[in-house]
Each structure stands twice: as C-alpha cells, then as structure tokens.
C-alpha cells in the first residue's frame, strides 16, 4: 500500500471515531430487542475479531494464510475440553487456548517464513488440513465428527449466559481486544517492520529489520487472537464439531472477510465482517446455501480483481471527497 493510500483521518481523529463507534456498539442491546438481529450481531463481532486476527499476519505481514481455521479450532476445543473434562472455566480456558495456538502459530511461522506467494499459501493450507484430519480422527479427545456439546452449567462464571446481550458484550470485549492489539501493532515498530517486509523483504532485511523474529511474532499473535475468537464462539454456540471449526472453507471465509473489508488496515476486516456476514445470512435466507456461496465466490473474484484494497478504500475515498467538499464550501463562505 502506498503512502497516499493511507487513512485520510489523523490518528487522533481515528481514536475519536473508534471511541464513538464503541459507545454506539455498547448501546446496541438497549436498542435492538429482536433476538435474530442481536444473534446476527454477535456473529458479526466474532467474525470481525477473527478477520482482524488473520489480518495481523495476512494483511500487515503479507502472509496469506489459508489455514487460520486451525487456530480458531484450537481455541474452541481447548477451552471447551478444559471445561468438560476438568471443569476449568472458559474464562481461563480462553487463555490456555490462546497460548497453545500462539505456540502452534510460532511453529508454523518458523517453518514457513522463507516461503513466498503460492508456496506460503499451500503450506498454511496443508497445515490447516493436518489439524482438521487430526480433529476428525482423534476421537478419544475430540469425539470426531460427533462434536462436543457444552452443557449449560453454572452461568456467567463459565461464560455461559441466559441472555443474548451478555454474549453481545463478551463478543464486543473480544473485538476491543483484537482491534486494540491490531492498532497497537500497526503503530508500533513491529508494525512498520511487517509492512516493510511485505513490500520488499530484501530491502527491509538490508536495513536491519529482523525478518524471522518479526514474522514469527506476527504469526503467534494472530494465531492467539484467532483462538480467543474460537473460545468465545464455542461458548456462544455451545456446540462445536470439526466442520464448524477447522474446515478448509472456514479458513477461506476468514481470509475473504478481511480481503473484502480491506486487508492491511486495522478497521478493514471489521468493515468486512459487517458487510459479508449479514449479506451471507440474507443470501442464504433468500436463495439457499448453494446459491449464496455462488454469490460469495463471485464477490471474492470481483473484489480481488477490481478492488484488491477492499471496501475500506472506498470509504476513505468518500471521506476525502466529503472533506474537499466541506473545505471548498468553507472557502466560498469566507
């Protein structure tokens, strides 16, 4: 991404806008009484977090991963199994899942950091499939395709709520965490390192960027946050199986959400979730599952071919135009 593509809003402005958006989101359960809409909203929050997590390694560092469902699954299964087998609350399990996923992410980062373009993509794809095969076949641990059901025990102390609004706030907390980490990385030295690596690895290396370290940290953080989203998802849906957690299609959709919104930016993936998830839901209701996915595939093709910077680029253009309009009005008034 060129400098001229940078956000038209100043960092301070962005912070104010983010704070305003957060206040609005906090009020949502007070306004939205419809269970269906609130449920959809929670799904959007989880997907926004997941896509934001993907974006840290996929967008900032440019490592297009098609295996992120593996980390989502590790998070979902770790917190759920700890709860079912040992009675450990998911509030702790979520961190255990994150640590485990971070270790896996770092391992994958260490073994793939040299690979470029399609080779990196295929390696992450293979990794995701290995995790999926293990998940389906290690029946003693995961119960395979039968899946795991979370019994409703305990309530809030076990991340299990009677009210949807409580899940809304849990999801919002997850989103604040992932976006916060993403913002922190974007503005940190590591963030600049990652973008430099993405644009020209040899040049960045020659200027002293620590290639392996930066990539591995990005991969680990990205994996850990994806796992957190997995734990929250498991507590929300209260049933997980390999198809809903570690399947290849899920990895594709994670990347798709981030790409549609705008990869390499902090708020692009969030915007992507707000567009793709409700759209997908609407299409499924109107056209049925298969036809909805036809539109998905078409959308993915058209977006990457015509607007690889995603929807956020359009929003930025709009803001810039509005600014110019306001400025010219002001001048005319004066």
């Amino acid at each position: 991404m060129r400098i001229s593509d940078a956000s038209p809003i100043s960092p301070a402005g962005a912070r104010i806008a983010a704070a305003a958006a957060l206040v609005l989101l906090l009020c949502v359960p007070l306004v939205v009484r419809d269970i269906y809409r609130l449920d959809l909203g929670i799904t959007v929050l989880i997907w926004a977090s997941l896509a934001t997590a993907w974006n840290i390694s996929g967008g900032f560092a440019g490592g297009l991963s098609l295996g992120h469902a593996a980390f989502f699954g590790v998070g979902a299964y770790t917190s759920t199994l700890l709860f079912l087998r040992l009675g450990i609350t998911p509030w702790i399990g979520i961190f255990a899942g994150a640590v485990l996923a971070a270790m896996l992410g770092a391992l994958l980062g260490v073994i793939t950091f040299r690979l470029k373009g399609p080779f990196f993509v295929l390696a992450t794809l293979a990794f995701g499939i290995v995790v999926h095969i293990i998940n389906v076949n290690w029946r003693g641990l995961t119960r395979g395709a039968a899946g795991l059901l979370l019994p409703f025990r305990g309530g809030p102390q076990n991340m299990l709520f009677l009210n949807l609004w409580a899940y809304w706030y849990t999801g919002l907390g997850l989103l604040v965490l992932t976006v916060g980490v993403s913002m922190g990385i974007e503005r940190s030295r590591l963030g600049y390192y990652l973008v430099a690596l993405r644009e020209d690895e040899d040049a960045a290396r020659s200027l002293g960027v620590r290639v392996v370290r930066s990539k591995v940290i990005a991969a680990a953080v990205s994996a850990a946050l994806a796992a957190c989203a997995g734990s929250v998802y498991a507590a929300f849906i209260q049933y997980i199986d390999p198809d809903s957690t570690t399947q290849f299609e899920l990895s594709v959709q994670i990347a798709l959400v981030a790409i549609v919104g705008g990869m390499g930016t902090t708020f692009g993936p969030v915007l992507g979730a707000a567009i793709v998830i409700p759209l997908g839901e609407m299409l499924r209701a109107r056209l049925g599952g298969g036809a909805a996915l036809v539109v998905y595939g078409f959308l993915l093709m058209v977006i990457v071919l015509t607007a690889p910077n995603g929807a956020i680029a359009g929003v930025r253009l709009l803001v810039r135009r509005l600014r110019r309009l306001i400025d010219s009005r002001r001048k005319a008034d004066a």
Binding site: L64, P118, M263, G290, G297, V304
Partner: peptide
C-alpha cells in the same frame, strides 16, 4: 498482487462448486 492471483481462482472454485450444487 499475490492476493489477487490466489483468491481469483479460489473464488472461481467456490463459484463453480456451488453452481453445480445449486
């Protein structure tokens, strides 16, 4: 960019598979 090269044919694959399904 890589993202276009990879996801254009991936999108096509999703499209064809589900067109057949529909």
């Amino acid at each position: 960019p890589d993202v276009t090269v990879v996801f254009a044919t991936l999108g096509l694959s999703i499209l064809l598979q589900n067109a057949a399904l529909t």
